[in-house]
């Protein structure tokens, strides 16, 4: 099979896109296999954890690649290009959501229902994760995007700046602001807070014994 069909697994995204522009469906299939999952999860995180919406958006981005592959400039990194397209799609969706919000008050409430799905309160870690998810949802779109691109998709400051069409300084400042805000809101999970809480519990226990 290898003799008949060329394997594209070792090819870079940029080379694959060159092939896609030429009309190679195997290259397109490879690109889809590589990027469908990250795109789906990005849209899921950015679009109020709505799986259906995320899948629609993911399909839309690949449809764009099929119909207008020439929009991609092979001299640019595919990773940043695809995230910037996804980011623009999210921006448009936020605008549409704002318009809808004016007509319907219950839109976001319905979508964010997934956010609090079955949290396991038995472990601190799970509690922290749930709280973090909640806090992330409360962040502004730009701060949330920056945070997700940085900590979920492991992108560099430079790439994030390119995707969000902003400066690296702005990206750094957004990350720092988000960390500070989340840290403040989740301070009960910080190691110091934990030791203080443990200490307070111990004092209470001693007082009870006495």
């Amino acid at each position: 099979m290898q003799l008949v069909k060329k394997s594209y697994t070792a090819e870079t995204d940029e080379n694959l896109m060159r092939e896609v522009i030429k009309g190679n469906n195997l290259a397109f299939s490879e690109i889809y296999d590589r990027w469908s999952k990250p795109m789906l999860n990005y849209f899921y995180k950015m679009l109020w954890q709505d799986r259906e919406k995320a899948e629609d958006f993911m399909q839309e981005i690949f449809t764009k690649i099929i119909h207008k592959p020439q929009l991609y400039n092979p001299s640019r990194a595919f990773k940043t290009w695809v995230y910037s397209v996804a980011n623009n799609m999210c921006k448009n969706e936020y605008r549409r959501a704002e318009v809808r919000k004016g007509t319907s008050n219950s839109l976001h409430d319905n979508i964010i229902v997934h956010d609090s799905s079955a949290p396991d309160k038995e472990h601190d870690k799970n509690i922290f994760n749930d709280r973090l998810k909640e806090e992330l949802e409360l962040l502004s779109e730009n701060h949330k995007k920056t945070f997700i691109l940085r900590f979920k998709h492991d992108l560099s400051i430079k790439d994030i700046a390119e995707i969000l069409e902003t400066s690296e300084g702005t990206v750094k400042s957004r990350i720092f602001y988000t960390l500070k805000k989340l840290g403040k809101n989740l301070k009960e999970f910080s190691p110091v807070a934990k030791t203080i809480m443990v200490g307070m519990c111990l004092i209470e226990l001693v007082q009870c014994i006495i």
Binding site: N129, L132, L179, S190, V192, A193
Partner: peptide
């Protein structure tokens, strides 16, 4: 606090 967020 920030460290806890980054690690978490």
């Amino acid at each position: 606090e920030m460290k806890a967020v980054v690690m978490g």
